[in-house]
Design a protein around this nucleic acid. Structure first.
Lengths: 229, 229
DNA sequence: CGCATTATTGAAGGAGTTCAACCTTGGTGG
DNA sequence: CCACCAAGGTTGAACTCCTTCAATAATGCG
């Protein structure tokens, strides 16, 4: 039933129809409503997942209650593969920011999953590598850049991954709050609010409740690069 | 010649002697003097490496010349496996902080390398996962903690990986400057200097030129956890 | 319609950066 | 062998970006 969707994903493109069917036979589809969690930080990792549609955010909470957004999961991406890290539990909480569809496999099938096609293992490693690269980018930005540039970078990244062309500009294709952006950039919702308000006045973006439309991508990019206006 | 050393690494423990010999036959050993680079950021990734002895730091430079330390490589760890990310170039510079020994394989052997033993692929993925986890920890710390706690965490982590028991306490087993710590924690060498001086006065550590001896691990741990003294 | 969630904005305060000057240490070469 | 110098380290003072605290407004869901 999801065959055609999955078949079109780069992750599975080299897999034969028979193998794919075998894989799908063991998967459980699940609908996740907005605001609902697929799994919670610290829970035993019983499954790993593929996001078919919608959007998730993966968060971590620190001992003293502070929260950060570790990753945004886009359709076609694997998530919750704690077994790859040889971890018994999920390191974060995966929550739907829009109504989403996931496919779940039991964790014990992980080695089977990546053993099936050598390419699948390689692809997964590449995904991991890309995430690592992104994490290092965030670290670099947090170390060296002021918050306005970090927010600009974050929004540009989101627009690339989840941008929808509208008349007014490119809109981030899922609800996103000031707090979310703050948790992605290592600042406070107050600072984000001030920055977005300023950009709104300058005509760079158009903001609303849980909504951001980018009107001037090059302008934002210039800000992100730290160039003078 | 390095057989016994390598054989004892967890990475290769399940490999047969014959396979190991095959692998070693294709590897090139190389001595790297302190301060010398194994590879530089942006260079074409012609090889991937294993650190036999010594210690490396992997750094990245931003467009505007700011530098951060992405990772410290300890003996027995793989590094420079850009091919796993399907990257053509090295994302950072690997520099020896002590005289080191490395083993290099041509990049084209990477798929052969991880294909040889399924376990090797799994292990590499776990390594990648651990690095990702560590990166997220750094992001979390940089988002939520003041610099003193971050420095405490960084030093505790180093002492765990490279600590040497001395009479005065546990010494970090390689030369490390204030600047290095600043580049690992996202602050300035000035701030690190002030923090270490204060700790020195309090008897938590004993500092010297490129040298740190930890005298009170529990005390540092308490600081790292943000507990009141 | 009411209330919770999200967002805005002002004011005050502080942690850390930046700038700057000076001190230490160890290695090198005259 | 010791004088010098570069690299590493310390420390003060000013400043600033961002957080924190606080109060108010807008939005949309039940």
């Amino acid at each position: 039933m999801h065959r055609t969707v999955i078949k079109s994903l780069p992750l599975f493109e080299t897999m034969s129809d028979a193998d794919l069917d075998g894989l799908l036979a063991q998967a459980t589809p699940r609908r996740v409503a907005q605001g609902e969690a697929v799994f919670k930080q610290g829970e035993t990792a019983t499954s790993f997942f593929l996001l078919l549609s919608g959007r998730l955010k993966v968060t971590q909470v620190t001992g003293d209650g502070q929260q950060i957004i570790v990753r945004v999961v886009h359709p076609g991406e694997l998530f919750g593969f704690a077994k790859a890290l040889a971890r018994p539990d999920y390191p974060g909480t995966a929550m739907a920011v829009t109504d989403s569809m996931t496919l779940a496999w039991p964790s014990c099938l992980w080695s089977d999953f990546i053993g099936r096609t050598p390419l699948l293992a390689a692809r997964t490693m590449q995904t991991l590598g890309r995430q690592l690269d992104e994490a290092h980018t965030r670290i670099r930005e947090m170390s060296t850049q002021e918050s306005e540039r970090r927010v600009a970078h974050a929004i540009l990244r989101l627009s690339g991954k989840a941008g929808r062309q509208e008349e007014a500009g490119i809109q981030i294709g899922f609800p996103i709050s000031r707090r979310d952006i703050a948790e992605m950039t290592g600042t406070t919702l107050h600072t984000v609010s001030r920055i977005l308000s300023a950009w709104n006045t300058q005509g760079l973006v158009e903001v609303g409740r849980q909504k951001i439309i980018i009107r001037d991508i090059p302008g934002l990019a210039r800000l992100a690069e730290g160039k003078p206006e």
